[in-house]
Design a protein around this nucleic acid. Structure first.
Lengths: 234, 234
DNA sequence: TGCATTTTATTTGTCGACAGAATTTCGACC
DNA sequence: GGTCGAAATTCTGTCGACAAATAAAATGCA
């Protein structure tokens, strides 16, 4: 269960503790290794990471600030739940952020941005080719994060990153139980999106981003509408 | 300088410490009582609030997560600077959020929301009548926060709140040195906005919110373009 | 006098410990 | 046997202290 206790690791740079815990916990939450709603024991984490509760708590506070963990006073912190009932607010927001960041990227990107964006797209295409669902979700996030970055509006970038992370959890919920393939379309849509950005065609970027978001929303909706009942003979 | 040390206050509920420090520091940062770029000494705050450094640190981590303080490793935390050069990203984002949240409020508001919104509007009008610039900025924030809340999209609400807070700092920068009056227009625009929301007229809400945002942006730009040189005889 | 280097001092990051709250366990009573 | 209440346990919130790292001061040298 705990494999981190074997390595003798009294060596740790001052100030790196929080970062390690934060990133590790964050990944585990987004990958659903820590399932939504599960309680988080500070002492347990402290022994697991071989450090005091102080840096653990600081990491938890940060994660709470990003909405990934929920804390109740004098009670254990919990991994934030995925609010399936209000998913439409997520659809709405991610669509708008896709559109806005792509528009701004077309407007303000610099040559170096395109290099970064294309590198992420290559990784995404590789993940699709390898049928690696987890890598697809992760590289898709990185690609859109790079596009948002190229738009150079930190407020939009911030919200986009949060939405992408939330989406990573939702998609993970999906790919956990199901492994079909259709994301080849996404590769092509990404290519078209990058072309539009490179051409600085704002309206075309907007249209493609909008269609891309719709595509993803439909994908998630199809997943959620899936009827998982099995025909059992009675 | 420190007037909080006089009151004998060993009485403090468990778990309230962080909240007190967080809200106090937050207000002081937004009101520019703590000027942007000024260093934050944890020990000093600890004695001032009569508590240990632990809750202070936790409050600072939270504020850092909201972008109100910047922390460098092994160095003092600083009150976040106001990036005047990239103000256009702020204009862009606040305009979009005004539009989106007002649209959603027109669509999804419930009767109780209108009561809350109108109450905030009344307070805003009172602040304008009283020529209380600080109260105007504060109540304006509360009003738009209530509208965002009525739209029921937590992602938009989150970004809107952050933008409103950032705007509070920017406007505070203005009203600090200058006290003129023109916000009577804002009162009327707010009234029109609330009417459109109550009528569930999405397009009209959008138009008014857009115009309102433009108005505020122009106001800030006029402030920043102000020539503060004084004609000194040489 | 000016600059580089060592020494001092201040400040953060982390630790272990204690007390308050809440949950759980155990026991008594109906 | 079930339910209510009390003791015990567990976990969080806060504290004071120590050590690393940086900033400041002091010293030596050219």
């Amino acid at each position: 269960m705990s494999d981190a206790s074997e390595s003798g690791i009294p060596e740790r740079k001052r100030g790196s503790g929080v970062k390690v815990v934060y990133e590790m916990l964050r990944d585990e939450i987004l990958d659903l290794k820590l399932p939504p709603g599960s309680p988080i024991d500070e002492v347990q984490l402290a022994e697991r990471f071989g450090m005091s509760r102080t840096p653990i708590r600081e990491a938890l506070v940060r994660l709470a600030g990003e909405g990934l963990v929920e804390t109740l006073p004098n009670r254990s912190a919990m991994v934030a739940n995925i609010d399936v009932l209000n998913l439409h607010t997520f659809y709405d927001a991610i669509t708008l952020m896709y559109r806005v960041t792509t528009r701004l990227a077309a407007q303000y990107h610099r040559p170096a941005d395109l290099v970064t964006i294309r590198a992420h797209q290559a990784k995404y295409a590789a993940a699709v080719a390898a049928q690696d669902a987890l890598a697809m979700v992760s590289t898709n996030r990185d690609l859109h994060a790079a596009i948002a970055e190229a738009g150079r509006n930190p407020y939009y970038t911030w919200l986009t990153l949060r939405l992408l992370d939330e989406g990573r959890r939702i998609l993970r919920l999906y790919y956990q139980s199901f492994d079909d393939r259709l994301p080849q379309e996404y590769v092509e849509e990404h290519e078209a999106m990058i072309d539009a950005i490179a051409a600085r065609d704002i309206e075309r970027s907007d249209r493609i981003a909008s269609a891309h978001a719709d595509q993803i929303v439909r994908q998630i909706q199809k997943l959620l509408a899936r009827d998982e009942r099995q025909s059992v003979p009675l």
